[in-house]
Design a protein around this nucleic acid. Sequence first.
DNA 1: CATTGTGAACGGGTTCACAGCA
DNA 2: TGCTGTGAACCCGTTCACAATG
Lengths: 206, 206
Amino acid sequence: MVNEAIPDIVVSRLPLYLQCLQRMKTAGVKTTNSQVLGQMLGISAAQIRKDLSQFGEFGKQGTGYSVDFLVEQLQQILQVNKIWKIAVIGAGDLGHAIARYGGFADRGFQIALVFDSDPQKIGKEAAGFKIHDTANMVEMIKTAGIQVAMLTVPARVAQEVADQLVKAGVHAILNYAPITLKLPEGVYVEYIDPILKLQRMTYYLK
Amino acid sequence: MVNEAIPDIVVSRLPLYLQCLQRMKTAGVKTTNSQVLGQMLGISAAQIRKDLSQFGEFGKQGTGYSVDFLVEQLQQILQVNKIWKIAVIGAGDLGHAIARYGGFADRGFQIALVFDSDPQKIGKEAAGFKIHDTANMVEMIKTAGIQVAMLTVPARVAQEVADQLVKAGVHAILNYAPITLKLPEGVYVEYIDPILKLQRMTYYLK
DNA sequence: CATTGTGAACGGGTTCACAGCA
DNA sequence: TGCTGTGAACCCGTTCACAATG
């Protein structure tokens, strides 16, 4: 298949499949099938088969899917068979926690640069990373050829910093600030705001 | 309207509307309309009108919506016109960052209890909160009447801890561990896994 | 006169059901 | 026999377009 008309919602499920399969792989599981996978993820088996079939015929009738093979294929599709260097902007508590987190490596990412604009923080270290001045951000990111960034700055400066990131050549921004960013076509943004998720749940409580 | 058949996807957009409206309110904006709101959030105006109309007639033809009034209504609908006490399980870097975060109060939440199972951490403080032993978690959460929890423990123990949370009376879990939880009907779970979002973006890069 | 609320049309994602194949 | 891949049916959310109205 490998058609260009793959819905974004399908793409958004692939990382979930990969996450699950990588855990299975670590656990030594060699083979699985759409039903097992679906049960683990709370997704229908048909959904999983249809999603995967959009990218090729990865399974074997009567057997299912080879875990190792499917991991490889998904990594390739998502382009995480290589390691992406990422920049973290904002060395506050969250930035520090991200810099210290050890779970990026086997999933395709690696912190490369950390920035902050606070003179008290610049020059110091965060989890082994030297904290650089945001003033040099565009240049340093450009030089390092970094395309992916995580934004952990206060909401009031998020848009401004994001604009600079785009100027630096960043095409993918994971934004932790609780504000919707306006960015040019071709720049991808994802949002993480825990409170949005909490509020979604409290709607249903009681 | 206030029908019971409100799609989950509609509910999931309400917190976003509220977030935006609260910023407008802080900025002193008194009135807005579906078009402005839509532009700020990257959502169609018709979508916003239809979503809001599911819960009542909040707007005025020719004028739009009163920001203050709409904030109040949404807070009420989402039940965040009161403050929910939340428990944080796992006092690692992320747990600490969450405990220190000051943005919960005006959005309906408040950290109340912090737990960890590491003897080295128990009894110490995290952002002013005493770290309690996970062994006492069920009892303490039950006593405090807490219904909302944030899970920041390692993936290998996440399911086990989540089961205990349910036993303690928790009905809403925000899970930061990269694993899908299996929980009984009536318990709501949301997931935050930054890597899933990063991988979703790298698919489109280059 | 600008903007809401909404029925109807539209579009597209999910589920179904089964042929096909190891 | 068991499970995949997939066309077709179904379902449901989004967009459209306009009557209603302050």
